[in-house]
């Protein structure tokens, strides 16, 4: 479904490449986690799939198309087969949930009766039944992300790209979103999700592609998030952390009013 062949992306001449000789093959209906530190190339990977960027070298195939050589006027057709979800939801604040979802169909010229039928269906699927008339600000973060997912899948894309969809959500809410993405995946939609959330990755046990400095360092079929550096490396007892306040006190200055 998505195929990277020795893809490199260099943004500025002479700079370190954002992606370096990356080859990844995502099958139809797969669920793939894209993990790695900030700046490891996850976002570049997604923007190459979306054809927001072109690779500097190598080939990118999405749904059978050579995306790198796709002419400009064909890009919309490609994107109609892709759904995208972001960390910051990107809902239009002046439109209701229903209008936000309908917008995605309106702008690609779907007839009105299709919109009238599809939007409530999709809202039901993501668990927002009865909330179509709410404004985004009247929803919780999780609900907003559900609305954004509804917008992404309303045109029944073959591929759903998610860029840290749980990044702004608490663990319980994140879980709900993951269940939703899993359900969407089970309907046959290929899902590629860039994330930092190790708990989710470890629990879902799906394919994990780890990027580091633009290079694929791991590609496991049922992987975990991978080793994380511990927050407090073991450096022995530290008076400040172990018993705050018991060390030498700084002299206290008293300011007297004159």
């Amino acid at each position: 479904m998505i195929r990277f062949e020795n893809v490199s992306k260099v943004y500025a001449r002479g700079a370190r490449p954002a992606l370096d000789q990356v080859s990844v093959d995502v099958e139809r209906g797969e669920f793939v986690f894209l993990v790695g530190a900030s700046g490891s190339g996850k976002s570049t990977f997604l923007s190459l799939v979306l054809r927001e960027q072109r690779p500097t070298r190598g080939r990118v195939y999405v749904a059978g198309r050579d995306v790198a050589n796709l002419s400009g006027w064909r890009v919309p057709t490609l994107r109609r087969q892709l759904g995208v979800v972001f960390q910051d939801f990107r809902l239009l604040q002046n439109k209701t949930v229903h209008e936000n979802v309908a917008f995605a169909l309106q702008v690609i010229g779907k007839p009105r009766h299709v919109i009238r039928d599809t939007v409530p269906e999709v809202l039901e699927m993501v668990g927002l039944t009865g909330k179509g008339k709410r404004m985004p600000t009247e929803l919780s973060g999780g609900e907003q992300q559900r609305a954004a997912i509804a917008r992404a899948i309303v045109n029944r894309p073959q591929i759903l790209l998610a860029d840290e969809p749980t990044g702004n959500l608490d663990p319980t809410t994140s879980l709900g979103i993951m269940r939703l993405l899993d359900r969407i995946n089970r309907t046959g939609t290929t899902v590629v999700m860039a994330t930092h959330d190790d708990e989710i990755v470890n629990e879902m046990r799906r394919r994990v592609v780890e990027l580091s400095d633009g290079v694929v360092v791991r590609d496991e079929a049922r992987g975990g998030y991978g080793e994380r550096e511990s927050i407090l490396p073991d450096v022995g007892a530290s008076p400040v952390l172990d018993a705050p306040g018991s060390g030498t006190r700084a002299p206290v200055q008293t300011v007297r009013g004159s």
Partner: peptide, 8 residues
């Protein structure tokens, strides 16, 4: 958003 959902 229009760009991302494939509006021409």
């Amino acid at each position: 958003i229009m760009r991302l959902v494939g509006a021409s």
